[in-house]
Amino acid sequence: MSDQHSGTADGTDTSAATASGTEASDTDTASADAATAGAASQPLLRVEDLQKSYGDETVLRGISFDLDKRDVEVIIGPSGSGKSTMLRCVNRLTEFQGGAIYLDGESVMAMNDNDLRRRVGMVFQDINLFAHLTALQNVTLGLRKVRGMGKEAAREKAMDQLDRVGLASQADSYPAELSGGQKQRVGIARALAMDPELLLFDEPTSALDPELVGEVLEVMRDLAEGGMTMLVVTHEMGFARRAASSLMFLDEGRIVERGPPEQLFDDPEHDRTAEFLQRLTTISEEV
């Protein structure tokens, strides 16, 4: 496992699209970035020629892209295209075999994995709330055991996060007593509490009943508007259109196309993108 560049051409050219990906509406972003010295020149996340295989099966075949602070990247693609795997490489829940990932200029391979995960939060498809802890305790566990905060301080901070996702009143409920949408909002609060620089969302709404999807997307939209840097695997095209700064279409372990959402929706370069988006919108209309 190294930072070695194998130099495969596939997908590397798409990184150029990043620049255009951030344009929409973000004049305040620019000024915020300028405030942090050097941030303008360095992306928050840089993925370079990422390769990953499970045994004989190659899942990622050279993925490269940059993500700036406050960017919201939505990743779409058919099942098995490597979306989730790519996300898991970023916080090293999965190890990768080739390429490199830099967080704020630092290779994630060189970082302690616990430190990395403290800086990169994750929200899961199957939610995975700690089943034996209340909503509040789910949020405080990381604060207490990872960040070493005191009981009261952790509690206060956790309540703020629960308030942020609109669940302060459910602080003492156990996961089994919450609806799916509420659970996922606690999951988001749990990730937020660690003050992550980057939040990964792995199909956060696909395990939810349709009527519960809205409340979760609303929280995510608020986060995006608040300037959180997000990498979101989702097929919620409404969210992509409204909140994403950039959309990425992944297929067979490669980036097929990447750009501003309007561009991919209205004028995709590749037929495959058009076809896939067509199918997604049809399905979501049926639902």
């Binding site: 916080n91 829940l93 994995d113 616990n114 430190d115 990395l116 995960r117 403290r118 939060g121 994750m122 899961f124 199957d126 995975n128 709330l129 700690f130 089943a131 034996h132 566990l141 990381g142 055991k145 990872v146 749990r190 990730a191 660690m194």
Partner: peptide, 29 residues
Amino acid sequence: ESGQLTAARAIGLSRIDGIRHVVLPQGLR
């Protein structure tokens, strides 16, 4: 469920801490 340990790891708990604070309290029940 294995997702419990994954989630613990994802908020930065070490493997041993994840087992101690998340898996064992459930498993022992």
